[in-house]
Design a protein around this nucleic acid. Structure first.
Lengths: 197, 197
DNA sequence: TGTACATCAGTGAACGCGCGTTCACTGATGTAC
DNA sequence: TGTACATCAGTGAACGCGCGTTCACTGATGTAC
């Protein structure tokens, strides 16, 4: 009987969820170990039984968010057979996700690991899967392009859209108005997938 | 005779330069009041005589960087009479500046003021001046467009290019390869300024 | 120009707080017979 | 099933460190006569 393992698994899960909730409530910057364990109703030390440290826990939260984003965008992509329209829908879908999950979404990009520690493989894979959705649409638009070029172009388009969305959502820097965001994203997506040599 | 004022002005300037140098050396995250005053060869408390606090000093550093960026991009713009080519040159020029001033450039976007404090007007103006350079080129490409629409589109293009450059420079997220950055920026700038209804 | 006094700038030791991480403890879970 | 013992999970008070900010002090600058 694995009662101890069950407890551990339950604790691990509760801590993850508590961390997510705390980030939603106070943002990554306002995340404190004590708040997480208070919310998860366990002792402070438990974090270090279930995770290496706070950074490790945050990485898991971010992975969780990336999975949710991937699920969201996959389902959006499925609805649009035309690759041009699909790109527009993906851009808007990304904006919608970012908007409705703002603090978690921001955490993905704001969290910085200590320099001596490197990003786990599964995190890179999460990102690669996202890019694949875009690359696939591009492949349909440019059937003769090389696979590597498509991936590279997908990165460009993703980061461009991300830039537009990030500046629009965090008022801080002069991004586009929020109510013009969808319109501008549509324009961007259309321009960027107009056929060319 | 304003000897006291001279000393104060000198100190203020030295602190600014020391802060810039420290950011270059250790990044915004590694910026510490003690390191700044050590480099400026004055006492710790002096920061609070010349600036409200560390955040205020950082805002001044960022303003300094934005001015340098504006100067750089203005001179780039002057060299290209054709607005399409100018947009390409601006994108590459921005990437070049970001690359050669990475820590200072990153500081502009990484620095977060406490929520209760708002961004001074001069900081917004610095940003607006940057956008104007882009809007001007757009105005030549789309002579019939409204001024407001041009500004909005300039914001979109700026944040898109910024996204591409930011992801490419900070390896962290899957941005385009650094040696393909210029090529991708050129493609982006051309696509985004292709004539359309 | 010289002297006496007032002001106030720069100084840096000390304060204070936040907060991640540790570790000696204790009691529930698992094991042996 | 019951009892005695060993293990080891979760606990949370305490540690330790980093670091922004303050403030009583002192000596140079400015002022009055």
């Amino acid at each position: 009987m694995g009662k101890r393992e069950d407890i551990r698994a339950d604790l691990t899960e509760r801590l993850l969820q508590a961390a997510i909730d705390e980030i939603c409530a106070n943002g990554l910057k306002g995340l404190r170990a004590r708040d997480i364990t208070a919310r998860a109703k366990c002792a402070l030390g438990t974090i270090y039984k279930c995770y290496t440290d706070l950074d490790d826990l945050i990485m898991h939260v971010n992975s969780h968010t990336l999975h949710a984003l991937h699920t969201h965008l996959s389902s959006v992509a499925k609805k649009w057979p035309n690759p041009h329209d699909r790109m527009v829908a993906l851009a808007k879908g990304y904006a919608g996700f970012a908007q409705s999950h703002q603090p978690q979404w921001a955490a993905i990009f704001d969290h910085e690991l200590p320099v001596d520690r490197d990003i786990p493989d599964w995190h890179h894979e999460d990102q690669a899967r996202l890019l694949k959705i875009i690359a696939e649409a591009l492949g349909e638009i440019y059937p003769n392009a090389q696979r590597d070029r498509l991936i590279e172009r997908a990165k460009t388009i993703f980061s461009a859209a991300h830039g537009v969305i990030a500046f629009a959502l965090q008022q801080r820097f002069s991004g586009v108005d929020q109510d013009q965001l969808d319109m501008e994203l549509e324009a961007l997506a259309r321009m960027v997938t107009a056929v060319q040599p």
